[in-house]
């Protein structure tokens, strides 16, 4: 067991993968000499050199487009998009090219690239540097999507992403980079595409991912003191989506809260809620409740920012009300 940050786990994953597989290289803005805007690749330039930590001009569409071409030419690129907020600039190369090439070309070739990026609130970075845009990716067939919440998953999901035959968008959370956990990287973790049940509980289940896993865990601990036991599911990957783990817990508890930091409307939480309603309707004691980001841009103000996304307090309060509905009924 060793204490490690989420940031260092990501770096270790890149280091181990690059050591094992010569075809892997990192390309993006400030990934080399600078060491990454959030320090994830710091030191790798010195270890692996300029060819494998390729500093690029500020040209997001061409970064992703070049990664597509390299992936089609036998390489395994890790393109870095400094902020997920810039994904709109790359959406043609990501959504029209990377995602569709295998299908359009009749299965002749895949695009085994990883697009590493980060999103979320927590640094007063404002409306163009704080978004949670995973729905854009989840809505695009052909793209895999991983969003690690824990230090161990930062390592293992990135390693697994670098073994996938198809393009993976890997969204880190900017507020988790400094998070430390005791981890044993050799300990087994759920396989790629499987959710992790972070906490068992029979009163309700909270389905979430990325930083909100920690908020949900915090809320669940407070709920436990009041005699309410919430299960917490960390989805880990949104594509593939492990619906079976969700179903099992919904059938057990009958109460479901879906938590997402992204704007609520037409988001990941909406998709999860719809699926749960469709597939587990007979088991639901009450409607699935979405606890998600407000349908507003993110503010720079610390207070406005923090309260525009779910907080541990909000999750706890909503859970208490959901359980109270049952008691009253």
């Amino acid at each position: 067991m060793a204490e490690m940050t989420y940031r260092d786990a990501l770096k270790q994953a890149l280091r181990d993968a690059m050591t094992e597989d010569d075809s892997i290289f990192v390309m993006g803005e400030e990934v080399g000499r600078y060491g990454g805007a959030y320090g994830v690749t710091k030191g790798l330039y010195e270890e692996f050199g300029a060819d494998r930590l390729l500093d690029t001009p500020i040209s997001e569409p061409a970064i992703v487009g070049a990664a597509v071409g390299a992936a089609m030419s036998g390489m395994r690129p890790v393109a870095e998009l400094m902020y997920v907020d810039f994904i709109g600039m790359t959406m043609d190369q990501l959504g029209n090219q990377a995602a569709k090439i295998r299908y359009m070309f009749g299965g002749q070739i895949g695009v085994p690239m990883v697009l590493r990026t980060q999103g979320g609130t927590g640094r007063s970075a404002g409306a163009q540097h704080s978004q949670s845009l995973e729905a854009y990716v989840m809505h695009t067939p052909g793209l895999r999507l991983a969003m690690p919440a824990t230090v161990a998953d930062a390592y293992h999901l990135l390693r697994a992403a670098l073994r996938q035959p198809d393009p993976v968008v890997f969204i880190e959370h900017k507020s988790l980079y400094a998070m430390k956990e005791e981890v044993n990287l050799s300990a087994p973790v759920p396989e790629w595409g499987k959710a992790a049940v972070r906490r068992e509980g029979g009163d309700l289940v909270i389905v979430t991912y990325s930083r909100q896993v920690h908020y949900a865990m915090q809320a669940a601990q407070e709920l436990s003191k009041k005699g309410v036991e919430a299960a917490v599911i960390d989805l880990r990957t949104l594509n593939p989506l492990d619906f079976e783990t969700i179903r099992r817990h919904v059938e057990k508890t009958g109460r479901v809260m879906v938590v997402s930091e992204a704007a609520m409307t037409a988001g990941v939480a909406a998709e999860l809620s719809a699926r749960i309603h469709e597939e587990c309707f007979d088991y639901l004691a009450e409607p699935v409740v979405r606890v998600a980001g407000e349908d507003i841009p993110i503010s720079v103000s610390v207070d406005l920012e923090a309260n525009s996304v779910p907080t541990p307090g909000l999750i706890r309060d909503v859970a208490e009300r959901m359980v109270a509905v049952r008691s009253a009924a």
Partner: peptide, 19 residues
Amino acid sequence: GANAIVGGGIPAVVGAGLA
């Protein structure tokens, strides 16, 4: 690949060139 997005196929040659 041919491309239905004007300019869409251009950056791929940069990646192919790197390889």
